[in-house]
Design a protein around this nucleic acid. Structure first.
Lengths: 224, 224
DNA sequence: ATGATAGATGGCACTGAGTGTCATTGTCAA
DNA sequence: TTGACAATGACACTCAGTGCCATCTATCAT
């Protein structure tokens, strides 16, 4: 559990876009990736929960204290890049016509977030770790929840009535779950492109939603 | 974060359904509810993250060590009764005709889980705490994830093709998100019955899904 | 170049969650 | 009553996370 006692942390200049001397920034990035690579390797070897911060820092060659200047917590390592999803989500919502149906916004957002996720460094390793360790899954979800709130707002503005806005949260959760399903299949499928998997999963979902007979294997039509 | 170092814990006879002498069981239940009530009150007063276990045990009149014999963690307090959802989900799936569409199973499961949740002791307080404290929300999600896995299996058996089964996870997440939305509205709505809120939210969602003009307020028909 | 400055690191001590162990107390059944 | 066993409290311990400060190093003005 997070214990947000007081201030954020002194640490490296927070990487907050602000201009920073070149060599310093280079070194920061070096330490950050060393830490992250060491951690991901260890998570793959021993499972997320079995790895202590001390082991990570030992492998990366920095002190325990320095670790917490780069990452807020062990969980934070699993959430790398998740924060930028907030912007992605906002952008997709803005770029989409104002009057598309929620289901269409769902499709676009899920596809885009999945695309970005898959392109991130060591993305398959991250998925593998999450599939293997419940703790890692939780660490992810903690961060993803913040994205869900932004997503919910986006969906709210696409729902017509006051009543229907209450369902925006369901669309938001659907979207993130779809991303999860896509990434999982993409990780298991041997070398397929994300775009293909995305169409496959999203298509399957929409067919199941409609209840119409799909073109897929074993698709018997059975009226409810 | 959970650190599952070794064994579960010695503690009270684990409440595992096994027959236990009457007086012992009574006392256990007394301590458990004292602990839970004290915790919930404190969470409402100060927010989930600001409450230390020590404060809870002080108010309940037991030692710190005893707390961890009744609850695995502070988070565990927020997940009271969530575990039984697994059984509820299984039961709903079994009681439903084999050939209903996933969307119908979604509706039935969400409605039933929401009904059970609302009937739990102090359920509105729990929702209130979750709405106020991000940490409490996470604590819930951690446990709910286990239910999601059971739910996913249930949905998988309702999806026709091998391809469509890949979408089962999306239905599972949808369902739990719907429960969350229902409970939130139920908590905000003044004294309305859960059943009414359930119909409202689920109906709104399905209308939004179809994109057809609903009967609800402000439902203009707008073709995409 | 050189020295002042600001940022980065490491070490240490501290809080708080969670766990193992054991002596003590209380309940139950014979 | 007494022996077996469950529950409790006290203590010590591990590990995550944080504040503080001394030290080191890159940057920049002179």
């Amino acid at each position: 559990m997070k214990r947000p006692r007081t201030a954020p942390a002194p640490g490296p200049k927070a990487a907050g876009g602000a201009s920073l001397p070149p060599l310093r920034e280079k070194k920061q990035e070096l330490v950050r990736t060393a830490l992250r690579d060491a951690a991901l390797d260890l998570f793959l070897e021993k499972g997320f929960e079995a790895v202590r911060v001390e082991e990570i820092t030992a492998r990366a060659g920095v002190s325990r204290r320095t670790f917490f200047r780069y990452f807020a917590s062990k969980d934070d390592l699993m959430a790398h890049g998740v924060d930028e999803f907030r912007e992605v989500v906002r952008r997709v919502a803005e770029d989409s016509p104002r009057n598309i149906r929620p289901l269409e916004l769902f499709r676009r957002t899920a596809a885009e977030v999945a695309r970005i996720s898959a392109a991130a460094p060591r993305s398959k390793d991250v998925v593998r770790i999450i599939l293997a360790s419940p703790g890692a899954r939780m660490a992810q979800m903690t961060r993803v929840a913040a994205v869900e709130d932004v997503l919910e707002k986006a969906f709210r503005s696409r729902c017509r009535g006051r009543e229907e806005r209450k369902a925006a949260g369901i669309f938001a959760a659907m979207t993130l779950a779809a991303v999860g399903a896509i990434l999982r299949e993409w990780c298991l499928a041997d070398g397929a492109r994300v775009e293909r998997i995305t169409e496959q999963v999203l298509g399957a979902f929409e067919r199941s939603l409609a209840g119409a007979a799909g073109k897929g294997a074993g698709g018997r039509c059975k009226s409810a």
